[in-house]
Design a protein around this nucleic acid. Structure first.
Length: 193
DNA sequence: TGTTAGATCGCCT
DNA sequence: GGCGATCTAACAT
């Protein structure tokens, strides 16, 4: 059976607050040029959030986050990785959702070639890994989530969503804006129970 | 199973 | 000059 069987275009309201979008994205399938999988881990960021790139206002780097919702924000992390976000709320709010992990379902061979390893669990377990597996770099910054290039699908098994503190930040560490699919083996890290 | 260092660059509430 | 919304390999336990 084909991986996309039973899936249909997802209806995500990107004008909603980023934490709500982050939660609703869990269990949907993201494809970039036909390659991707089921979203199992996300994090929300917002301009009022000290941990967000947009907290201090617009810059050249974060301009896409202040643009229209439903577009992509890609930034360089630690000087060498790329990380992919989906912009939320109305244009100008500087909010978005960081995509942290996928359960690979489409284009496994392509992802393995891009990542240089075989283990499916490590292909997209982390924002830098995910972007590399999907072939996303700064050239994708500002592009719309729009078929046929960037596709969101829903259907199949409904996700049971758990929340916890975000990873790798030093501010707003008590804000529970990391979301994941309970029990998934494809998370970048587990959730405390 | 866990801790550490190194890579590398945009931005500086 | 220093610090990240990170990842990997190398080392210790």
């Amino acid at each position: 059976m084909l991986p996309q069987e039973g899936l249909q275009p997802a209806e995500i309201d990107f004008q909603a607050p980023s934490a709500e979008v982050a939660r609703r994205l869990i269990g949907t399938t993201l494809l970039v040029d036909g390659v991707g999988g089921r979203i199992v881990e996300t994090e929300a960021y917002d301009q009022l959030d000290p941990a967000s790139h947009t907290y201090a206002g617009p810059t050249a780097r974060n301009a896409a986050m202040f643009g229209p919702p439903g577009h992509v924000y890609v930034y360089r992390s630690y000087g060498l990785h790329w990380c992919m976000n989906l912009v939320c709320r109305e244009a100008g709010h500087g909010a978005g959702v960081l995509l942290r992990a996928l359960e690979p379902t489409h284009g496994l061979d392509t992802m393995r070639a891009r990542r240089g390893l075989q283990d499916a669990r490590l292909l997209c377990a982390g924002p830098g890994r995910l972007a590399q597996a999907l072939g996303v770099d700064h050239g994708w910054n500002g592009r719309p989530v729009q078929a046929p290039t960037i596709v969101l699908l829903q259907g199949g098994v409904p996700a049971e969503v758990v929340a916890g503190p975000r990873i790798g930040i030093s501010k707003a560490v008590d804000t529970l804006w990391r979301f994941g699919e309970r029990g998934s083996r494809y998370l970048s890290r587990g959730f405390a129970r």
